[in-house]
């Protein structure tokens, strides 16, 4: 594995404006990481370019594909639209932090078993999203396809229709969706 680029000294920030740079601490996959970033640096770029956690992917850089999905304080978010500086003090879980040593997270295992991926580029985002989805449904959070008359209490049953709607923030151009839905159904059991 190659080291990361850390060639930009702080003095060379744009127009030498010191206030355009921030130092912050993130708790990433359980470890506190302190870094100094250009205020413009997104959480995604901070993870990828500063912490060498390249599992989170940049597909669109505008919150339109979900490849950058990570868990921020346990909630799934598009890390490409979050400035790193805004996340100071927060806990971030990336795809690299899901497995327990060599033991894959059940969602990861199900993705392997169901061939829920092809090129693999959207996969880390899909998996982070699916992990959050399981919590959201267990927590009773509704989706657009949850019947509105349903009582707000109790977990939502993850039908294929529910999974499809709840996974629609993660685009897969290879078209692995049916296998992704199968994998999440399996992991939900």
């Amino acid at each position: 594995m190659e080291p990361v680029d850390r060639t930009a000294p702080a003095g060379e920030t744009p127009e030498g404006a010191p206030e355009a740079v921030s130092t912050l601490t993130l708790r990433v996959n359980g470890t506190a990481r302190t870094l100094t970033v250009d205020n413009r640096t997104t959480l995604l770029d901070a993870l990828r370019d500063h912490l060498d956690l390249t599992g989170s992917k940049k597909g669109c850089d505008h919150g339109q594909c979900g490849a950058c999905t990570v868990l921020l304080d346990g909630r799934r978010v598009n890390s490409c639209l979050l400035l790193a500086v805004v996340c100071a003090g927060a806990s971030v879980t990336t795809v690299e932090g899901l497995s327990d040593g060599d033991r894959l997270h059940p969602v990861q295992e199900a993705f392997v078993a169901r061939d829920a991926l092809q090129c693999g580029y959207c996969t880390p985002g899909q998996i982070c999203s699916a992990v959050a989805l399981l919590h959201e449904a267990a927590d009773g959070q509704p989706s657009y396809v949850t019947p509105p008359e349903r009582s707000p209490d109790g977990p939502v049953s993850l039908t294929p229709e529910e999974i499809r709607e709840r996974m629609s923030g993660n685009i897969c151009r290879c078209g692995a969706y049916p296998n992704i839905v199968d994998a999440i159904e399996e992991a939900a059991r």
Partner: peptide
């Protein structure tokens, strides 16, 4: 698959 689901 394993490399892809772990981000490696």
């Amino acid at each position: 698959a394993r490399q892809k689901v772990t981000g490696e």
